[in-house]
């Protein structure tokens, strides 16, 4: 009997469509169309696509999703794959890197980094820091800081003294006007992050451990 190219499996998190990663792409599309049309599901269900070790371009992924969703029963919640292109892996590596800058970020200067950025020194008014990841300032942050410029809402901004004029995380912007004086008045070691309400919130640095546990890399200290 011919090997099935598309397998639907039920898991705790919903249905997963396992797509064969060895056959030709056209065969796969063919079988996927057949499979979803005879799925026999009448209520709306979330499915995940599992591509295995097949590399699909963005357009191919879009096509696969379109085929599945044409049934109007199945909704693709996630596409998983075991492969990354060199470019994507480089991007991931760069974003997880840390850059250190020693000195003052002065008025009119823009400091950019694809990953996290650590500034040992002040960020003066009208100085700007943009990071793909988190922004850490060992000094006074009196200028503008933008963390998660590529849309990472988990990014945070932490400073010895947070006296910034503008705080931005992902697509959220906060102008530090009088309403936010509370944050300014916090003695020192303040951090900014996107809270549960989707807006920028402030807290003391020691609270970060609970707010963003993933930032923590435990090495010793037990």
């Amino acid at each position: 009997m011919k090997k099935q190219l598309v397998n639907m499996k039920g898991t705790k998190g919903g249905f997963v469509l396992h797509l064969d990663d060895q056959c030709a792409y056209v065969d796969l599309v063919e079988e996927l169309k057949k499979k979803v049309s005879e799925s026999g599901i009448d209520s709306k269900v979330d499915v995940q696509l599992y591509l295995g070790y097949r590399y699909c371009s963005d357009e191919q992924i879009k096509e696969l999703i379109k085929i599945v969703q044409e049934t109007e029963q199945l909704i693709v919640s996630k596409v998983q794959s075991e492969v990354l292109t060199v470019h994507e892996s480089d991007q991931k590596r760069i974003e997880s890197q840390q850059d250190t800058y020693l000195g003052v970020v002065r008025s009119g200067q823009i400091l950019r980094s694809p990953g996290d950025i650590i500034i040992v020194g002040n960020v003066n008014p009208n100085g700007r820091v943009e990071a793909g990841g988190n922004v850490y300032v060992l000094g006074k942050l009196k200028g503008i800081a933008h963390a998660g410029v590529h849309g990472n809402k988990e990014a945070i901004i932490a400073a010895s003294r947070l006296e910034a004029t503008h705080i931005m995380i992902a697509d959220q912007v906060q102008v530090m006007s009088d309403e936010h004086v509370k944050a300014k008045n916090q003695e020192e070691m303040t951090c900014a992050f996107i809270g549960y309400d989707g807006r920028i919130t402030y807290d003391q640095i020691h609270a970060l451990k609970n707010i963003r546990p993933l930032l923590n890399v435990s090495k010793g200290g037990s």
Partner: peptide
């Protein structure tokens, strides 16, 4: 002082 800060940045 603001402008001095800017010019120092450029001078550096």
């Amino acid at each position: 002082v603001r402008d001095a800060d800017r010019i120092i940045g450029l001078l550096e």
